[in-house]
Every structure is written in C-alpha cells, then in structure tokens.
Amino acid sequence: MRNEKVLSLVNVSKSFGNKKVLNGVNLDVYKGQIIGYIGPNGAGKSTTVKLMLGLIEGHSGIIEIFGENIIKSDYAYKKRIGYVPETAELYENLTAFEYLSFTGELYGLATEDAEKKAYELMKEFGLEAAFHQRLSSFSKGMKQKVLIISSLLHDPDLLFYDEPLSGLDANSVMVIKEILAQLAKRGKTIFYSSHIMDVVEKISNRIVLLVDGQVVADGTFEELKMQNKEGSLEGIFNQLTGFTEHEQIAERFVDLVSEGHNNE
C-alpha cells in the first residue's frame, strides 16, 4: 500500500508578483500516510495546499494527484478529495442538515444518502439535536465538526486539513485524532497542516518542514529527532527555522508588562 503514490510535486515554484513563495518543492506522498506539513508563517504551506486543490494557478513544475497532472486534468480528481481550510466561510443562514446535504450532493451523493449519512455522522459527534438548527447559532467547535463531516461525507481518498482541531475541546480533539488514525489505517492519505507541534508530532507518520518555500526536513519524528538532537518537534522546528530567541522575547515582553507596576 505504501508504494502507491497519491500525490507528487516535482520542482514546484510559485510567485506572487516579485515575491517567490515556493521555490522548487519536491514531494512524493503515498497511500495511508499522515503528512504533518509544518513551517513558519509565510513559509508557503497554504500556497502549496491551494495549488494542489486547484484553488490558485500559475505555478511552474509538475503537480500530480492520483497519477494525473492537475493542469491537464478535467478536475475529476477533486471528487476524491476532502478539504477543511483554516478559515472557512460557512453558509450560516443554512441549517446543518441543509449545508451537509448540499455539500454531499455537490460531491455526487444522492440527496437521501447525503441526508442519512450526515445525520448519522452528526449523531456520532453528539450533535443530532442541532441537525435542523441554523449554523449561525453554532459554537466555533460545533461549526468545526460540521466542516470535518462535510470533508468526509463522500468518503474521499485524500484529505487536506489546515488546523482542523481549531475550537475543539479536549475530548473532541481525542476523537478527531483517532478518526484520522483510523482513516489512515483504511488507506486514506491525510495532508495535515498545523502550528500545534505536539499534535503534529503525535498523529503524523511523516513530517515535512517548509522554510522560505523550500523543504528543509522530511521524515518520521524519530528520524528528525536523530538528525537534529532535539527532544520535541517544537525544538526541532526552532532549530531548523533558526528561531531561538523565544525566551528573550518573552522576558522582555513580561518586563514591559510589569514595568509600570514596578515603578509604583
């Protein structure tokens, strides 16, 4: 299973005006992998994902998904993809039932099948009582669960998740992490982007670190730890991105906070 390539980037570069955001990214992703895709703000993570999803265009290099060059594809590959963006715009005047039925139909599910599956998935999250309530009345965590359900309704083979645990309580985080693990066991491929290093460390079986539009580390957590002599992913991240001033910044910040108080 691991030899089945799902996604391939070959020397992919992307610029916005004079600013080069991606600079020759090479990456092969295989069936059943959970890729933790990390990097500082502005490293090019979201740009990579949006290129792969076909949401932005104008790149150089080759992007293949399920063996198809996405530039030459008829976009049929998108039916096999699920996506939860970092900030999603929900149609908040719709009920969860209406939104999920609509999403399921967009992916080709029959209306009745979409409705039934959406209700059952909402029930697993303990949200069945809110199924016919407007999304505008939902908490952030409830909306996030609806987004996760919408990404899975059509049983996709490849999932792109950008900060999917945002707004979730501790119990829900445990459930979602286990869902991702179970999906990977069943051959689904997950491209997971987050700033929460301990979560990436725990759920990913491969971690890719992007800095200034280039891949600077790629391997399991154990491999990265051996190469960089750090005990945590956060430590490895700081070492490879060259950011070591967090303690000094924090100290200066707290000094400034307490400055007026100390002068009293």
Score class of each variant (00 low, 15 high):
Met1Glu: 14
Arg2Ile: 10
Val6Cys: 05
Asn11Arg: 09
Phe16Ile: 15
Asn18Gly: 13
Lys20Asp: 05
Asn23Ala: 10
Gly24Pro: 02
Gly24Glu: 06
Leu27Tyr: 08
Asp28Trp: 00
Val29Pro: 03
Tyr30Trp: 08
Lys31Ile: 12
Lys31Leu: 15
Gly36Trp: 01
Tyr37Ala: 10
Ile38Ala: 05
Asn41Pro: 00
Gly42Ala: 03
Ala43Asn: 04
Lys45Glu: 08
Leu51Arg: 06
Leu53Thr: 10
Gly54Glu: 05
Gly54Ala: 09
Leu55Arg: 10
His59Val: 00
Ile62Gly: 00
Ile63Ser: 03
Glu64Tyr: 03
Glu64Leu: 00
Ile65His: 00
Ile65Ala: 02
Glu68Ala: 07
Ile71Lys: 14
Ala76Phe: 09
Arg80Cys: 01
Tyr83Asp: 00
Val84Met: 03
Val84Phe: 01
Glu86Thr: 06
Thr87Ser: 09
Thr87Ile: 14
Ala88Lys: 04
Glu89Asp: 12
Tyr91Asn: 13
Thr95Asp: 11
Thr95Pro: 12
Thr95Trp: 13
Glu98Cys: 07
Tyr99Cys: 00
Leu100Asn: 06
Gly104Asp: 04
Gly108Thr: 08
Ala110Lys: 15
Ala110Val: 09
Ala110Asn: 09
Glu112Asp: 13
Glu112Ala: 15
Asp113Leu: 07
Ala114Arg: 04
Lys117Tyr: 11
Lys123Ile: 01
Lys123Glu: 15
Glu124Gly: 10
Leu127Trp: 13
Glu128Phe: 08
Glu128Arg: 07
Phe131Asn: 10
Ser137Glu: 13
Gly141Leu: 04
Gly141Trp: 00
Lys143Pro: 02
Lys145Val: 06
Ser150His: 02
Ser151Met: 07
Leu153His: 11
His154Lys: 09
His154Cys: 09
Asp155Ala: 11
Pro156Ser: 01
Asp162Ser: 07
Pro164Trp: 07
Ser166Gly: 02
Gly167Arg: 08
Asn171Ile: 15
Ser172Lys: 06
Met174Trp: 01
Ile176Asn: 02
Ile176His: 01
Leu180Lys: 06
Ala181Glu: 13
Ala181Ser: 15
Leu183Glu: 14
Gly187Ala: 08
Ile190Lys: 05
Phe191Arg: 11
Ser193Trp: 10
Ser193Arg: 07
His195Pro: 00
His195Glu: 05
Ile196Thr: 13
Ile196Met: 14
Asp198Met: 12
Val200His: 12
Lys202Leu: 12
Arg206Tyr: 05
Arg206Asp: 10
Ile207Gly: 04
Val208Thr: 07
Leu209Cys: 06
Asp212Gln: 13
Gly213Trp: 07
Gly213Tyr: 08
Val215Asp: 05
Val216Gln: 00
Ala217Ser: 11
Thr220Trp: 08
Met226Trp: 01
Lys229Asn: 14
Lys229Met: 02
Gly231Ile: 08
Ser232Leu: 05
Phe237His: 10
Phe237Gly: 05
Leu240Val: 06
His246Val: 04
Glu247Met: 02
Gln248Phe: 10
Gln248Asn: 12
Ile249Val: 14
Glu251Cys: 01
Val254Met: 15
Asp255Met: 11
Asp255Asn: 15
Asn262Ser: 14
